[in-house]
Design a protein around this nucleic acid. Structure first.
Lengths: 159, 159
DNA sequence: CACAACTAGTTTCAATTCCAATTATACTTT
DNA sequence: AAAGTATAATTGGAATTGAAACTAGTTGTG
């Protein structure tokens, strides 16, 4: 029998708990300061950055589920932070954009995000941060590759 | 007004989507091959590694919610993969351990985990893997630090 | 143009997750 | 040893999530 890795050494586990810790902390800040959930925050960040978009485009850019995007948009609209205007090119969708209030909030939100990023990566050199970013991207690319083929039991454990 | 980072460049976001991609992929494998959820898998991994433990100890070692641990244990017991025996030292808790069947499955599970890890990090050098591990640990430590103090609005945006 | 196939957005429902309350036992203090 | 406090496990219920169904509008094809 092979010696089994302890869970704590298992990289996907480390990745998961680290990500949860960071996300949890950030979610807490957004909630406290602005009463925004993470999906709501993401939609605002993208809208503030690109101007009016459809939900479809938001779904692509945030990599969130379309249901999550839809709910976030609904909340933002109800709170008067965003507004939907009809899409002349396509009657099924609308353009979503920040209102003035929303744009104001966006102006406050982004510095908080940057401050959080700065704090979470405090003590990292610029090189380390770039390295980290690169590694994350490569991992993600790798998972994308994997998604085509499935592991079968004749196919693992042996090199 | 400060220029706002596009969401895609925001490190906590990159961390989150990468972690989700990896976790999602791994969850899928466990479900397909063994019908196990991630919490169930984690409990099995730890038990197979350390021998009998109480739920409290499992909660500590997996960093999961105690409810999640409790439910995972219940399922494992029902499936005959683990068994609870009374704890002579403390009548409130029991010792949880893998059954022979559970131990068998553990023997199959760990190679799959290792194969997944290998695939996700295929193309990484040993140095890069260690680097990545170290960076993750440092980030997590940093978030722990942060958890004591809260950001207030007079306190960010300015270096 | 009519019909089929497709897509954006929304709703519904079921599963999961998370918090708070509960129960049973253990420990501490007087 | 009785009373109060603390802790392990469990349960119940509310909130969140995601998959699939549904609606309305669009695109492509004969």
């Amino acid at each position: 029998m092979q010696p089994s890795i302890p869970l704590a050494k298992f990289l996907p586990y480390q990745l998961s708990i680290t990500s949860n810790a960071v996300s949890g902390r950030i979610a807490q800040e957004y909630r406290q300061h602005f009463g925004l959930s993470v999906p709501e925050w993401r939609v605002m960040a993208v809208l503030g950055d690109s101007g009016a978009l459809t939900q479809r485009e938001l779904t692509q850019r945030t990599l969130m589920d379309k249901v999550a995007v839809n709910r976030a948009c609904k909340v933002l609209e109800e709170r008067g932070l965003a507004i939907r205007t009809p899409n002349a090119q396509d009657g099924r969708s609308h353009h979503l954009d920040l209102t003035d209030t929303g744009r104001d909030m966006h102006g406050q939100i982004m510095p908080l995000a940057q401050e959080m990023e700065r704090r979470v990566f405090a003590g990292f050199s610029v090189d380390e941060i770039n390295q980290f970013r690169t590694l994350l991207e490569r991992v993600r690319g790798q998972v994308g590759e994997l998604d085509s083929d499935t592991i079968d039991s004749d196919n693992y454990g042996v090199r």
